[in-house]
Simulated scan of single mutants.
Amino acid sequence: MDKYFEGKRILVTGGCQGIGKGTVLELWRFGAKVVALSQQADNLETLKREYPSVEIACVDLRDWNKTRQVVDSLGNFDGLVNCAGFINNEPFIECSPEAFDDTMNVNVKAILNVSQIVAKKMIENGIKGSIVNISSQVSKAAIKDHLAYAASKGAVDSMTRIMALELGPHGIRVNAINPTVIMTELGRRAWADPVKAQAFLSKIPLGRFGEVQEAVNAIVFLLSDKASMINGVQLPVDGGFLAT
C-alpha cells in the first residue's frame, strides 16, 4: 500500500488535529505529498514546523467563496479526505438555528464545495482519484442530543452515494467511514466521565472506544488501490455498535 502513495498529492481538510492530523501524518509516512487544510492557523504552523514537507492552507470552510479560491489555487490532487467537522450537541427541542446552520455549513456544504473543485480537476486531468468523507455512526443510529450532527452526517452518507454514482464513470471512487467515538484529545475530554462513558461502551461489542489510528487505517485503505473496487460505501469503524 505504501508504494501506491509515493508522489500522490492528497488534500486533507481538518488536517491539523484529531483524525485529520493522524491521516496527514500516515500519508506523509507513505510518501504522499500532503496538503493539510484548516482554519486553525497556529496548529497549521506547528504542523509545518514539525513536518516541513507537508503543505498547509488556512481557510474557514464556512466561507464558500474564499474556500473555492484557496482550494482552486492548490492545484491538482489524486486524493481528498473531507475530515473537517463541527459538533454542538443540543437536544431536539433546544436545537438552535445557529447551531444547525454552523453544523451543516462545515459538515455538509464544505464537503460539497471542496469536492466539486477537486473532482472537477481530477476529471479534467484524467486522474482516477479517491475521495473519503468522514461520517459517523450517528447517521445510522439515533443518539440523544445529536440532532444537528446526526442530520449532517446523514447528509454526508447520501452525498457519498451520489458522488460515487456520478464520479464513478470517471474512475473516481467516493466512500465514507462511520466511526464511533474516537479517542482524540477532544474525545478523551468529552468522555472522561466514567458513568457517561460506560453507558455508551455497553452498546459496543468490543467494549471500548476507537483510537485515532484505527480510523486512519480505514481512511488510508479506502484511498489506496487496495480498495480499487470499493465505491459508494459507508464503512462503520465502530467496534460493532451498529451490529447490535
Rank of each mutant, 00 (worst) to 15 (best):
M183F: 13
K109F: 05
C83K: 00
I123Q: 04
Q40T: 14
E214L: 07
D2G: 09
G210I: 01
K109L: 04
K203T: 11
R173L: 06
G14E: 10
M163E: 00
K226L: 15
L47Q: 09
V174K: 01
D225G: 08
V132K: 06
N105Y: 00
F209M: 06
V34N: 04
S224N: 09
R173Y: 08
G75K: 04
I219M: 07
N88S: 15
E90K: 12
F241Y: 10
D42P: 07
I182K: 07
T184L: 02
L242W: 02
G129I: 02
L44M: 10
A192Y: 04
G85Q: 08
V34C: 05
V70Q: 05
I19L: 15
E26F: 05
R189D: 12
V71R: 02
E124R: 14
Y149E: 01
V106L: 02
I177C: 12
A84W: 13
V106Y: 04
T13I: 09
Q198C: 05
P205M: 00
I131L: 02
V212R: 09
G15M: 05
K226D: 15
G171H: 02
K128T: 11
G154S: 08
P97Q: 01
E26V: 08
P236K: 09
F241C: 00
T23H: 10
L80H: 12
N217V: 08
G18I: 07
E45A: 11
N65Q: 15
N175G: 00
V70S: 06
K226W: 13
C83S: 07
